[in-house]
Structures are given as structure tokens and as C-alpha cells.
Design a protein around this nucleic acid. Structure first.
Lengths: 195, 195
DNA sequence: CTTCTATCTGAACGCCTGTTCATATAAGGT
DNA sequence: ACCTTATATGAACAGGCGTTCAGATAGAAG
């Protein structure tokens, strides 16, 4: 049979992306086959090629869309002028945004090496944009004397690495609430950079 | 031909592990074939099975040996009694040890999901041991009033995540020396936990 | 009711996978 | 010089891979 009931492009497309997202996150890009993805959607492997030119593009688009969503969401915020407040906002935003999308985040930094070099370059550029927004906050605070950081670039990477750690252990309904987690991390970040 | 000149068990064995280490780190466990590893060593794929029962064991032993080396190296240190000094030592040790073994470190946290569940459990236990040694320092400092951390477990994970970040960007001969990097990170960690 | 077209199937393509094993050979011991 | 044994080859196995495509079908359009 073909074109089974209720099965349309605008339904199958997202379902393929969701299935790929979950499987890539759980088992890794290289370990997941197109047939597995198709199986999860309930379709034959050939049908996937109505929605992606190939497996690589499937991965790339997941990562690109995620990075673009991240940048757009951060851009949408009303950013405080005060560096300390801006940093606090960044920490909260980063934690919450990433905890809402564990699979995307996992893929975005685990599967970089499985991108072709052109695709890697593009994703790296997006990531750099995001890091720059944190670095700008740190530079502003350094200039105003509110922060004291030896090297804004390293501090940026260190802070983001620290915040990313949260997704490896946080489980909703666990010992700490989201607010408490945010508070703990904010305390550490604030003290780590404050003058 | 077989048993080519100068080719012995005690040479081929390590060479296989080295080849696997580099390839797993660069391309990921799932993306590397036994034939690729054999090719790098200069033997046929079948010969690998004189040294490992299967591909999974090759990965597992690399990870287990790394974790054991890490624990042994840390245990060998003369640990200071003062929590502040102990923390400083931990930060320096962690950065230097990990920068000396970028491939092992990369594998140790990227390939966890490719371990069978028994193997995963064993590696996780070793990792926990290492994390515990940091948590003990934090707890001691908290008790003595030198540190002020809301949650020692989270702080432990946050500090390690931050320190691990260094291996993603540090290149020897780059802008900063190892000493400078250590200093920057120590400044951040110290302030992040200090009372 | 018929036609058209988007959507899917199912088989096929050539190639690669981890692993096994009979066979060959070079080194080490006597 | 011979024999043993560790070590390696190279072919084979069954199965999986990403991708393509002719053909089938269901829903939309007229």
C-alpha cells in the first residue's frame, strides 16, 4: 500500500525529524540507520528521501534549526543594560532553554564531528554568535569594573561548559527544582566573575 | 605471509590500542571499523582478534584503563590537608592530566552510550570515585567555613564540567601557556566556592 | 466519476560490517 | 637443523548500510 490514511507530507516530515532527533541523541548519528528512523515513523526507508536528500542533511538541519532557535529566543529577550543583570539573565535563559531541549543540545555538541566540513563551519559560526553574546556581557562588566575576569574568551567558554553540565544530570522531579538549580549556578557564576 | 619481521604480540597489542584510541576519538566508536584500525596498524582485520575478543572490549578497556590511570595518578599525590590547597591541587592536576590525554578524555565522555550496560556501570563507578574526591574537598571546606557552596554534589559536577571545557579549546603553543590557563581556571573555581 | 499527482512501497544496487577459521609462516627452543 | 607455537593472512559468512527507482495507491481537483 502507499499513501496510507492520514499520512501527509506535513505530518510525516516532522515525525521523521522527531524520530531522528531521539535516535541520534540516544545512540549517536553513526549508530542509527535510516531503516531505524523509518521504522519509528512507521514507514519504509525509501520514503525518508521525500523529506531529506540524505542522512547527513537530516543531522545538519536538526543542528542548524536548534542553533537558530537558540539565537532567536535569546534575541527576543529584553536585555538589561547592567552587566550583572544581563549575566543573571543569560544564566537563567541558558539553563532553562537547554533543559527544555535535552536531545537537541546533546546532538549539537556530540555530533559535530559527524558533520561534513561545510556543515561544521556553518554550525560553528552559529555557536560562535551565541558565545559572543555572553562574551560581550563579560567585557562590558569588566570595563565597568563590576567583573574581574582575566580572559573574557576563556571565561565565556568556562561558564558555558559549566552551565551545559546541568543537562547531564538534571532530571525534573529530582532533588532540586529548576529555580533552585538556577540559583545555585547563578551563585557560582556571579562569584566566579565578580570583582 | 604471516608473522612478518619484527612483529610481535607485545608490539602489535599496544599499536592496536593506540590506533583504536586515535580513530575512536576522531571519528567516534560507531563510525570506525575494525578494518580501519587494522589498516592503521598494518595488519589484516582478523589479526585484531588475537588481542581483543571483540570491538566492544577494545573500547571498554581503553576507557577503563584511562579511568584507572586517572585515579591512580591522583592517589599518588601528597594531598594537602587544607581544603583550599587541596582544591587548588585538584584543579591543577585535573587540567594537566586531561590535557596530556585529550583522546582518552574525549572518548571517556563521548562514548559512554556505546558501552554495553555492564561496561557502562563499571566505568560510571570509576568516574564516581573521582568525582567523590572533589566532593570530599568541597565538603571539608564547607565544614571548616572556608567554602560556601549551596550543594556540594552540584558544585562538584559544575566544577568538573567547567574544567573539562578546557580540552575542547586548548592547544599547546596557543595564546596562553599551561600555567596561565591553570591560573585563570583556579581563579574562577576559587571565587565560585569561596565564602 | 475520472484524472492527476503527491506519497509510499518493496525490491534492488554495490558496498561495508564484525567476526570466524583453515592455512601459512617466521621466530624460539632444543 | 628440526620442531613447536605464536602470530598473521585472506577468504568467507550472514547481515546491515545508504540510496535509488519503477510501480502502486490514495486523496484532491475538475
Amino acid at each position: 500500500m502507499a499513501r496510507t490514511q492520514g499520512s501527509h507530507s506535513d505530518i510525516t516530515g516532522p515525525r521523521i525529524r522527531e524520530a531522528a532527533l531521539g535516535l541520534f541523541a540516544r545512540h549517536g548519528y553513526a549508530a542509527v540507520s535510516m531503516r531505524q528512523i523509518a521504522g519509528e515513523v512507521g514507514v519504509q526507508a525509501g520514503a525518508l528521501y521525500n523529506y531529506t536528500p540524505d542522512k547527513q542533511s537530516l543531522l545538519f538541519r536538526l543542528m542548524r534549526d536548534h542553533m537558530q532557535d537558540l539565537l532567536a529566543a535569546y534575541d527576543d529577550l529584553d536585555r538589561p543594560g547592567d552587566p550583572q543583570e544581563a549575566l543573571r539573565q543569560f544564566v537563567g535563559f541558558h539553563i532553562r532553554f537547554h533543559l527544555q531541549r535535552p536531545d537537541e543540545v546533546f546532538i549539537a555538541y556530540m555530533e559535530l564531528r559527524n558533520l561534513t566540513s561545510e556543515n561544521f563551519t556553518e554550525i560553528e559560526a552559529l555557536r560562535r554568535l551565541y558565545e559572543d553574546s555572553l562574551e560581550n556581557i563579560l567585557r562590558k562588566g569588566q570595563k565597568s569594573g563590576q567583573f574581574s575576569v582575566t580572559d573574557t574568551k576563556i571565561t565565556t567558554l568556562a561558564v558555558i561548559a559549566m552551565l551545559n553540565g546541568v543537562i547531564t544530570w538534571y532530571r525534573s522531579g529530582g532533588r532540586l527544582s529548576l529555580d533552585e538549580v538556577e540559583q545555585v549556578y547563578w551563585d557560582m557564576v556571579r562569584r566566579a566573575v565578580s570583582a
